[in-house]
Design a protein around this nucleic acid. Structure first.
Length: 441
RNA sequence: GCGGCUAUAGUUCAGUGGCAGAACGCCGCUCUGUGGCAGCGGAUGUCGUGGGUUCGAAACCCACUAGCCGCCCCA
């Protein structure tokens, strides 16, 4: 019988790496809390229609990357329902917002989530079929100010703060651009965008034959993607294409200007990227992407997001403008690991406070009882086995803990423990009553 | 989904048709209450899976699976 393995594109996260995941999540939670966000947990699978209507039927995510299946009908009267593992979480959050009538509170909703998402793509470093996103959404009725450029800037400033606190450097000349970089654009309102796409298509018509084969295809299927082309020969042509900025209406132009002004006021660096187009249909106005050229290869988008003023209505809900983002947690971890490898951040390996080495199996019970007391006082403690030779206990202890606590017949009888600190090599006798205090230093 | 590279010990890898290897790690001993350093010894294993070629395959061929790189797209 062949052994079973994690299915393609999925993986096990094991200690000690999970400690890093926990640290990242704890940092994110702490930052989100300071900005007034509360946690939301939505189901991992939803009605397929949520993504078809929300994300967009023609997007790659929906048209070819979803895990979709027919739920079984258990009774003749019941209809089989098409269900899908969530490929992203914004649609689910907005569905929940509508379902629980959060807009009726009149309050601005600030929600964050941390959880797995699923897309059936070809796996690669930084791209998995089950991957994790840390995301947040700000949305509400118009009277709550959800549409304000202030919210865009606040979200972006929060992200800059989070990355700073995770010790991911900002890109600069000093670090050869090996830090994070915020690319910003506005794709206009839901009426601006179709007008722009039509103009783009028209402008491409006479010149596309001279472009690369990929662009010839994109000109037909998805003209916006032509802007992303990296082929050097195509750049002059692309530079001559209409710019989205020329197609923004007055309100969108003003909104974008306000976002930029607020970012300037907060000291958040950004680069306007007129070519930044995002693949999900719900984006309007502000779109952004944080990239980092470190540890990710071509999957260098660390997080992405944007405004989605029409999404709630697309899902049959009330008008509820909003803005949100999703961080690729897997990619964030890869970035931190690459930084650690380069020595610019340290991923602290956590050592236990003490390792108790009973001398002989006869001391095992006393060792466990001592461990219980020390653990109750908040210390992290491992208990060795009395049948191990002392040399082996020392070797194990040195790997696992900062100190070794030797528990032989003498120590049990006198109540005076022998404690050795590995870093200094100091060995002292400590009264059992003072042991907890001693080990805390 | 397309193209390419790769798969050998716990890990990183060497091994171009003739006994399955190195380093690190692991276990034991030198050393029966003292780790890190050193010396000596030991075990590493479905050579990714299945088939084929061959007297003989880890190696050559085919298929499959998985990872990685690029494309598409995205987090």
């Amino acid at each position: 019988m062949s052994t079973l393995k994690a299915v393609r594109g999925t993986r096990d996260l094991l200690p000690p790496e999970t400690a890093l995941w926990n640290r990242v999540e704890a940092t994110a939670r702490a930052v989100f809390a300071r900005y007034g966000f509360g946690e939301i947990r939505t189901p991992v699978f939803e009605d397929t229609q949520l993504f078809v209507r929300g994300v967009g039927e023609e997007t790659d995510v929906v048209s070819k990357e979803m895990y979709t299946w027919e739920d079984r009908a258990r009774a003749a009267s019941e209809k089989a329902q098409s269900l899908t593992l969530r490929p992203e979480n914004t649609a689910g959050v907005v569905r929940s917002y509508i379902e629980h009538k959060m807009g009726d509170t009149g309050m601005l909703q600030k929600l964050f989530y941390i959880g797995p998402q699923f897309r059936r793509e070809r796996p690669q470093r930084g791209r998995y079929r089950q991957f994790w996103q840390i995301g947040a959404e700000v949305l509400g009725p118009q009277s709550s100010g959800a549409e304000s450029a202030l919210r865009d800037a606040e979200v972006l400033e929060m992200l800059a703060t989070l990355l700073d606190e995770l010790a991911i450097p900002r890109a600069s000349e000093a670090n050869d651009g090996k830090g994070w970089r915020l690319a910003l654009n506005s794709v206009g309102s839901s009426t601006d965008r179709p007008r722009y796409i039509a103009a783009l298509k028209a402008a491409l018509e006479p010149v596309k034959a001279t472009m690369c084969v990929d662009c010839q295809r994109r000109a037909e299927t998805n003209p916006l993607r032509v802007l992303d082309c990296k082929v050097p020969e195509d750049q002059p042509i692309i530079d001559g294409l209409p710019k989205i900025a020329e197609y923004l209406d007055e309100a969108s132009t003003a909104h974008f200007a306000e976002v930029k002004a607020a970012l300037d006021a907060c000291g958040v660096p950004y680069v306007i990227e007129p070519r930044l187009v995002r693949g999900l249909d719900y984006y309007t106005r502000t779109t952004f992407e944080f990239t980092v050229a470190l540890g990710l290869g071509t999957q260098n988008a660390l997080l992405g997001g944007g405004r989605y003023d029409g999404l709630s209505e697309m899902l049959g809900g009330p008008k509820a403008p909003g803005i949100g983002f999703a961080i690729g947690e897997d990619r964030l971890i890869l970035t931190l690991q690459a930084l650690a490898e380069a020595g610019s951040v340290t991923i602290a390996e956590s050592k236990l406070d003490a390792y108790i080495a009973p001398m002989g199996a006869g001391q095992n019970a006393a060792a466990l009882a001592l461990a219980k007391d020390l653990r109750a006082s908040g210390l992290s403690v491992e208990v060795g086995d009395g049948s191990f030779r002392l040399k082996k206990s020392f070797e194990l202890a040195d790997k696992l803990a900062r100190r070794i606590l030797i528990l032989g017949e003498d120590e049990v009888a006198t109540g005076v423990m022998t404690v050795k600190t590995f870093a200094t090599g100091d060995q002292v006798k400590v009264e059992r009553a003072e042991l907890g205090e001693f080990l805390k230093n």
